[in-house]
Amino acid sequence: MEKDMKLDKKNELKEKLAHYLFLFNATVAIISVAAIAFFVFYRGLQPFIPGNAEGNYNLIDFLSGLEWRPSLGKFGILYMIVGSLLATFGAIILGVPVGILTAIFIAELAPKWAKKIIKPAVEMLAGIPSVLYGLFGLGVIVPWIMQISPQAQGQSLLAVIIVLMIMILPTVITITESAINSVPDAYREGSFGLGATKLYTIFKVVLPAAKSGILAGVVLGIGRAIGETMAVMLVAGNPIAGLPKSIFSPIRPLTTNIAMEMSYAFGLHQEMLFATGVVLFVFIILINLILSRITRGSVLK
């Protein structure tokens, strides 16, 4: 009897330990998010806080500057912000229609055999590492642009837009497809019953019903485009100053600014790269806030 009691106690302890072990691991994700936000902001805001050991920099000059010359102590990123936004905007304008139309084909029109080819192809597209997109851009798109561009080099805003447009396709397609699939068949039947054609039904009934899901896909695509680094770094040109004047001008997105110089930067230069990360992070947070607004009460769930 006493032995049983002991065993029970031992088991109870074991159960409790296990419970806390699992609980602790569940908090790791929360801790990670908090740590990432803390460290990136903490280190990135140092240059703007008076009395910083590595020297100070004016926040307004940082955000409105059109030159990045670390050797001269000039750290302006406005032209990078503009470059990042233009590239993202262009990629969305070109990529979203292609993505949505492809998703419509997969979800509503494709025969089974075609689905069996297209869906794995989209998955493969999502699985290609971004470096290889950059390689493709460097080996194919940049030389192609060089032929039509008035500028001497093919690395340009246009090259970035094309590479990013391809890269957001799988995101837009998969999310739009699942949004379309979650529209109840009764909607389609109702529309057909009223004599509408298939296309009319898709564009006037199904797509509006899947609106918030599609929007979520677009916003995720924006997030992917603005955060993309390695592919873009190979095709952007990364100039040290100047707003892009045309689609053939080289640009220097925020992400590549960080990745290119981090390996040899030190002191204030390094801290200004961290500060660039803060600006990028703010954009990402905004995008995620918009995303959670959209997905709340969406048909996706």
Partner: peptide, 19 residues
Amino acid sequence: ATESLAGIPSIIYGLFGMI
């Protein structure tokens, strides 16, 4: 938290890991 982690681009992870 897990959704946020999935939305953070890898360059930010790189920055964090470096810091």
